[in-house]
């Protein structure tokens, strides 16, 4: 039986202003979690926070934080209470063949997708803001496990995140804090639709590689819900592919 009582749980979701992060936050808000969301776009963050406040008395707040800015991360940590759940979701993508990679792209991708999480978790742990028994969910990607041309920096950043998660799970198991990774295949969000290479043709081409079709945000949300709940209390250090069967053929 899924235990969906999140009302007594303090949970932080990063990158909650769009796509998968917004979907996860909506679900948690419906289940009346004591939710804190963060994003870097004030307008979007205010709009979503207002919407959440109206439907959930337990909603905590939206905190503006560019995860590439250490000061913002420190403020974020200062402003939140001790967490029962943390979803590290903020991320960006890039399609650049290895031959054309630039220093700026590498730094942007790695800072957003990897380093920001190192620093956020470090500060949370240091200030004892992750409860014993808490669940940390990290959103990675199946990109780290295959060789899609043009994704080298993105895939490498997610690969780094996967390794980080394993070690973190091991270190935090002593405090009964669980760390699990979700590795989605392609889900239609702004991340995919706003890239330089997306066209209707490529989208339809892409969907042929997915036996069950492209993913929907809700598909990822259900898995994250399970990992945040106590129903997954015996899981840590796992990395779960959720990809409509993409990896069956690739």
């Amino acid at each position: 039986m899924i235990n969906e009582n999140f009302s007594n749980k303090k949970i932080l979701v990063t990158g909650a202003t769009s796509g998968i992060g917004l979907g996860i936050s909506r679900m948690l808000n419906e289940y009346k979690a004591q939710l804190t969301i963060s994003g870097r776009n004030q307008t979007k963050l205010n709009k979503i926070s207002n919407e959440f406040e109206l439907s959930n008395l337990n909603f905590n707040k939206g905190i503006l934080a560019d995860v590439c800015n250490l000061e913002d991360i420190s403020n974020l940590v200062q402003e939140i209470d001790t967490l029962d759940g943390l979803v590290l979701n903020a991320g960006i993508i890039d399609y650049t063949p290895a031959k054309l990679i630039t220093e700026k792209k590498v730094i942007d991708l790695f800072y957003t997708n990897v380093f920001s999480n190192f620093f956020l978790v470090q500060k949370l742990l240091h200030s004892k803001k992750i409860k014993k028994g808490a669940s940390i969910v990290i959103i990675s990607s199946i990109a780290a496990k295959v060789g899609v041309p043009g994704t080298s920096i993105y895939a490498a950043s997610k690969g780094a995140l996967n390794s980080y998660a394993k070690v973190l799970a091991s270190e935090l198991s002593l405090q009964n804090i669980r760390v699990n990774v979700v590795s989605p295949g392609v889900v239609k969000t702004d991340l995919i639709e706003n890239t330089n290479v997306t066209s209707d043709f490529q989208m339809s081409n892409l969907s042929t590689k997915y036996p069950l079709g492209l993913g929907e945000i809700i598909d990822i949300v259900y898995l994250v819900q399970f990992l945040l709940s106590e129903n997954s209390k015996w899981m840590t250090g796992s990395n779960i592919d959720i990809d409509g069967g993409y990896l069956l053929n690739n």
Binding site: Y95, T96, L100, T102, V197, S199
Partner: peptide, 23 residues
């Protein structure tokens, strides 16, 4: 090939600051 198409898109964006579509 498709990698050259991608490279061309990136080249246009990075070197010439122009977004070009695959179409």
């Amino acid at each position: 090939n498709s990698l050259i198409i991608l490279s061309l898109i990136v080249l246009c964006e990075d070197e010439f600051k122009i977004i070009i579509s695959p179409n």
